[in-house]
């Protein structure tokens, strides 16, 4: 069916507005990239819009020298990788028994866990618990209090429950214990849902600065997310980076260094994002089915 004149106008307007929405997501990012790669004069004169002017990688050199930023970036990687593995293991350890009919008091435990989504101990009491366990200034303070996200646990449990009973029965008849069933039959079938959950956990750990702010006081242990946050909030850190006593060094604007910091933090996300897109859409769909 050929679209009428009115419909053609509708499609044109619709797609124009969507294009604007998409560009509104793209342009701020391009602007930040442009600022990070422009030289001092161009940024000072305010000529930088969507592409770099007076190409310069000086901001990155300043940012990376002195070792504080590379160290913080490494901390981000450590926090994210270890946290991701721990969270996946223990979320599965919570979800799998709760999905097995033979297990005890499944309803009680599910309700007890869901209740913590609705009512929680809040910042100060949780801090006191972490403190009494002597976990301050240790990465365990970042990994343990958020070890299992009940929301993610429910997504995995719902997926496990959706697997046919016959699968478990036949595994049992073939002599599989619960662990073998989990590792050899259930997990290989669950790769897409695990990819989604891994994405949620990974992004959460990478982006987290609040726990680091609360629990980690040693600067050499803090992550880049917090460091960039501090760079945005206070000029003094930027100036500290800028005043490296390097003879004949060209000055950089705080805007460029800040932009470079944002880019270093966001770059890993931009790299993995295209590969993970198909998973998270699926994950949100699974999550939206109530379990």
């Amino acid at each position: 069916m050929k679209p009428t004149k009115g419909e053609q106008l509708f499609y044109f307007l619709n797609e124009s507005i969507l294009l604007l929405a998409a560009l509104s997501c793209l342009f701020p990012l391009l602007h930040v990239i442009a600022l990070a790669f422009s030289d001092f004069d161009a940024v000072m004169s305010g000529l930088v819009t969507l592409w770099p002017r007076g190409w310069s990688t000086e901001a990155f050199r300043l940012l990376l020298e002195g070792g504080r930023v590379p160290r913080a970036l490494l901390n981000n990687v450590i926090i994210t990788v270890v946290g991701l593995v721990l969270s996946l293991v223990f979320t599965t350890a919570a979800a799998y028994p709760l999905a097995r009919k033979r297990f005890y008091a499944r309803r009680f435990f599910t309700l007890a866990f869901v209740f913590t989504m609705l009512f929680n101990g809040g910042l100060i009491p949780t801090y006191l618990v972490v403190n009494s366990l002597d976990l301050l200034n240790s990465y365990w303070a970042l990994w343990l209090p958020g070890l299992i996200s009940t929301f993610n646990m429910l997504i995995i449990r719902t997926f496990f429950l959706s697997l046919p009973d016959e699968l478990f029965d036949s595994a049992e008849i073939d002599g599989c214990g619960e662990l073998r069933t989990l590792f050899h039959i259930v997990l290989p079938l669950s790769i897409p849902v695990f990819a989604t959950i891994a994405l949620f956990y990974g992004v959460g750990y990478w982006n987290n600065f609040v726990s680091v702010l609360i629990y980690i006081n040693k600067t050499e242990m803090q992550n880049l997310t917090l460091l960039v946050q501090q760079m945005i909030q206070s000029q003094s850190i930027l100036e500290g980076l800028n005043n490296a006593p390097d003879a004949g060094q060209t000055p950089m604007t705080p805007e460029s260094i800040r932009a470079a910091g944002i880019l270093v933090l966001v770059a890993p996300m931009l790299v993995v994002y295209p590969f993970l897109q198909k998973y998270f859409v699926k994950g949100v769909m699974i999550g939206s089915i109530k379990g």
Binding site: T116, N120, G121, V129, I148
Partner: peptide, 15 residues
């Protein structure tokens, strides 16, 4: 898992 919920979810409520 139960230990996690007791220590990091229920103990703070008690707090």
């Amino acid at each position: 898992v139960v230990a996690f919920y007791l220590i990091f979810r229920y103990a703070p409520m008690f707090g």
